[in-house]
């Protein structure tokens, strides 16, 4: 009866073969991998350099201005600037800048890859069927599983970090771009077609603008997930606030960990509010006044037309 309770080993998988395959790929494709690595590092450094050339008071002013304009509230602008000021005040300004450059580079790449894929799978049922399980895998696969191959292929440093972050963070923008485009009112799409739009015109002039609020939600989610990777990627040598947290954990320095961790949270919250404010605002601010002024406005031209 023993065999009923002991699951038989049917496949004797040699996982080391996979290790070897990845290793030999790393060797044989070294040239290509180096190019990618160089490109990714270049992008991160470029963004880092831009951030470096912004004096800190100007940076805070920019945060204040963005918060004020996007959230349409002076209070929000001040609050965000003060929060970011706090990060600098506890001596983490440079680390924050480093983190921000890795995160922004990852998000930029995620959007460049994600939005076109989202558009593709929104228009093609076939592509959708192929891509969806891949997206599910990317979202549920434990991050560490692809940290290792990234490490193998690109070594420690920003390039591996960016790749791991992109894999993890690209999913929401793909899904929400696709969802947004699918949700565009069927009659609006029919109307655009009926006036003789080409596929490109339909996409550019109608589907993407109509899907914009949902796409922006995807962008926001992607940014948030990239922020969530900050500490994880420090394990493969990405510098910044994440590294600070990791070091604190390794040395069991609770206070230092708390300060660095809080800085990550503050940065994430400010980025979230700023990107969230860009689109939904438009909807909220126009919806309400419509109803209240509807009757008044009805009267105008309709009476005039008679």
């Amino acid at each position: 009866m023993d065999w009923l309770f002991n699951f038989p080993d049917i496949f004797d998988l040699d996982t080391s073969a996979i290790d070897n395959a990845v290793r030999s790929f790393a060797v044989s494709a070294e040239g290509m991998l180096d190019v990618i690595k160089g490109g990714l590092n270049g992008l991160v450094n470029f963004i880092g350099m831009i951030l470096m050339y912004i004096p800190w008071p100007v940076f805070l002013l920019l945060i204040f201005w963005a918060g004020w304009r996007i959230r349409k509230s002076l209070k929000s602008g001040i609050l965000y600037a003060v929060l970011i000021f706090l990060i600098g005040a506890v001596g983490l300004w440079n680390l924050m800048r480093t983190t921000l450059s890795v995160v922004l580079a990852s998000v930029a790449i995620a959007l460049v890859i994600g939005i076109p894929i989202g558009i593709l799978i929104s228009n093609s049922e076939k592509a959708n069927k192929i891509v969806r399980p891949i997206l599910d895998t990317m979202q549920t696969m434990p991050v560490f599983v692809y940290l290792i191959p990234a490490l193998l292929l690109f070594g420690t440093g920003n390039a591996s970090g960016v790749i791991a972050t992109v894999i993890y963070a690209v999913v929401p923008v793909i899904r929400l771009t696709s969802l947004g485009i699918r949700q565009v009112d069927k009659e609006v799409v029919e109307a655009a077609k009926s006036f003789g739009s080409t596929k490109g015109q339909l996409l550019r002039k109608v589907q993407i603008p109509q899907a914009m609020p949902t796409i922006m939600t995807g962008v926001n989610q992607t940014l948030m997930m990239a922020m969530a990777m900050v500490v994880t990627t420090s394990m493969i040598g990405v510098r910044g606030l994440g590294m600070e947290v990791l070091n604190a954990v390794n040395r069991i320095e609770i206070g230092r960990g708390l300060v660095a961790g809080s800085s990550v949270v503050i940065l994430a919250i400010v980025l979230d509010r700023l990107t969230q404010g860009v689109v939904p605002n438009k909807r909220k601010s126009t919806e309400k006044p419509i109803d209240s002024t509807k009757n008044k406005k009805d009267g105008g031209p309709e009476n005039g037309a008679k």
Binding site: E187, E190, A191, A192, S194, F195, G196, V206, Q210
Partner: peptide, 20 residues
């Protein structure tokens, strides 16, 4: 495209207007 652009057009039940 030519036919839809010049010869025939359509009005929809729920208007089909582009809100953007």
């Amino acid at each position: 495209l030519e036919y839809r652009r010049n010869k025939i057009s359509m009005v929809f039940q729920s208007f089909g207007l582009m809100s953007h």
